[in-house]
Structures are given as C-alpha cells and as structure tokens.
C-alpha cells in the first residue's frame, strides 16, 4: 500500500503539503477536505485530487472527529502516509490520527531525506539545541510538516473531487463562539525581512525607533519571548522561537537578543542574520553573518538616521 493523504484546515498549507508529498514520491496524493465545499472546489481547481467529506454530524473544531475522518479516509483509500500541517490544529490532530492508525508520528518536520531507502525526517529537538533525523518504522506514518518548510505547489489542470463517506461518532465538543484574534494578525512566517526586539532594547520608548528601522527595511517586527510575555511590549503572536514562530526570512536583524537556543531555533534558517548586541560574547553573535557590538540606546537613532 502506498499513497499519501494530506490535510490541513488552512488551504495555503495544503498546497505546501502537496509539494512535500510529491517530493516524497510515495504514490498518489489526495487532499482531504472536511465539510468545506468551497475549499474542495478551490483545491481541485488548483490541481489537487480532493477527497471531500460532507458529514453534518462532525465539526472541524472537534479533534476526535477530525482524527476519525482522516484515519478512516486513509484506511478506505489504502493510503499509508498522512501529512498534516504543523500549525496548532495540525499538531493537535497528529497524535490522535497516529494513535487511531497505529502509526508512528513526527511533528514540526522541516524536511526529509532518504536514508538507506527509508524516509528520514528532520526536526528540532532538546528545545531547539539539536536537529534530529528520525524515521518512522510503522507501515502507516503520520507527519506534521512545519509551515513554510515547503513551497506551495504550482497549479495544474488535473484536479478532481471525490466524495468520501465516513462514520463518525457524536461529538462531545460544542462550539460556543469563535473570535478573531484582536488587531495584530501579522504573519511573521511569511515576512521576507524581520527586525527582532530582544531584552537588550531596554526602554519601551525605543520601540518607536525600532518601528522606523522596520519601516525603512520593509520588515515585520518580531520579538523574543520575554519581550512579549514579561514586558508585554508586543502580543504573543510576534514571539519568535520554539514557543512562537519558526521563520525563514531573507534577513533577520536581531536587536539585543542573547541567543538562547529556544530563540535561535526561530531565526537560524534566515539567509542573512545580523546581530546588534552590547555583549560581544552573546551567543547570537556566533550564529550571525554580521555582528555590531553596540549599545542599542545609541545605535537605534543612528540606524534610523542612516537607513532613512
């Protein structure tokens, strides 16, 4: 048995999963869509073979039901590989789908290679300190792939939609309300350039300067975790690192971040890293392309002036 079932509620991520599935080259690729006719339409128009579940009894917010839908569809179609998005919904789903399929599972997968004829996946481990290469030994495999690890697949004209019937027990979860996250919905992972604020930026009043630097560089602003959780200068959406966003920008300008692995894991795949820090020995400097040892209090206004 071979073949891949891909699923994410986020259509943009489905297109990335499709690329990953094709590159893995393990048989036909199907995209599952649950209770979302328009999305099925859209993905098939993009060229994907869509398996569409229309089951009014189940809902996307119920992980148990979704996991059943994924596992049963994979079973019916005899698909041994399930690719999910490693966003929050995908990660929550992954373990449950895997358990239902008696499958080994890896999440936050950033890439794969062939090691001795078997697929081997790479992902961060030990809080980002190491990069693990791991293989799944069960016949069925569930892999949650990090956003932006693969480029979205190019459109083709070969799409199709096929209805799938599944049998899902009544949901024990009820939706009361969905709220969009207020105001700040920046997509750091999509940003080409990032300016990152760390604790070396000591005064909140300096954020205005950071803003100007970001504007001049056409960059988005991210921050290290304490800047959002302790100082509350930015919403948590802007945290970069293991417990925030893992980004692959072309440029990361890092302002006053000491560089614990829990942070660096979020930027270390940037093409160019610049670290401005008053501590010459900051670990951040060791993984930077350009290092400026300077007091940010003095450096920021000058940077604004010269970039402007």
């Amino acid at each position: 048995m071979a073949g891949t079932l891909i699923f994410s509620e986020n259509p943009a991520l489905v297109l990335e999963l499709a690329t990953a599935a094709l590159e893995m080259d393990s048989g036909p690729v199907y995209a599952l869509v649950i209770n979302n006719g328009p999305q099925a339409e859209k993905l098939s128009n993009h060229g994907l073979a869509v398996l569409s579940v229309d089951e009014p009894g189940m809902s996307s917010f119920d992980t148990a039901g979704c996991a059943q839908a994924v596992a049963q569809t994979a079973g019916q179609k005899d698909l041994s590989m399930v690719l999910l998005s490693s966003d929050r919904r995908g990660k929550e789903l992954a373990g449950r789908v895997a358990e239902a399929m008696h499958a080994g599972c890896l999440t936050d997968v950033k890439g794969f290679s062939l090691e001795g004829g078997q697929l081997a996946f790479t992902r961060n481990s030990l809080g980002g300190a190491t990069l693990a290469t791991q293989a799944i030994k069960t016949p069925a495999q569930v892999v949650a792939v990090s956003p932006r690890a693969f480029a979205p697949i190019a459109p083709t004209a070969t799409g199709s939609i096929e209805a799938v019937k599944i049998n899902v027990p009544a949901s024990a979860v009820k939706l009361v309300e969905t709220r969009s996250k207020a105001g700040d919905t920046v997509d750091l992972q999509a940003a080409e350039r990032l300016v990152v604020v760390g604790q070396g930026v000591e005064d909140q009043s300096d954020l205005a300067l950071v803003e100007q630097v970001a504007q001049a560089l056409k960059a988005e602003i991210g921050c290290s975790k304490p800047v959002a959780t302790d100082k509350k200068w930015y919403p948590e959406e802007r945290i970069i690192g293991l417990s925030g966003k893992i980004c692959k920008p072309a440029l990361a300008l890092i302002l006053g971040v000491s560089g614990q692995v829990q942070f660096t894991v979020g930027v270390r795949e940037a093409q160019v890293i610049v670290s401005v820090n008053n501590d010459e020995n900051a670990f951040m400097n060791k993984i930077a392309d350009y290092v400026l040892v300077a007091d940010l209090k003095e450096a920021l206004p000058e940077l604004v002036r010269q970039l402007g």
Binding site: G104, C105, A120, L131, A132, T133, I136, K137, I287
Partner: peptide
Amino acid sequence: QVETISNLAPEMER
C-alpha cells in the same frame, strides 16, 4: 515506532 538516526546540534556556519 520512531527511530532516531541522529540528533546533532545543527551546523550553523555563519
């Protein structure tokens, strides 16, 4: 169900 083939600090040549 999962085999770890290697677990190394990434080479970060900058």
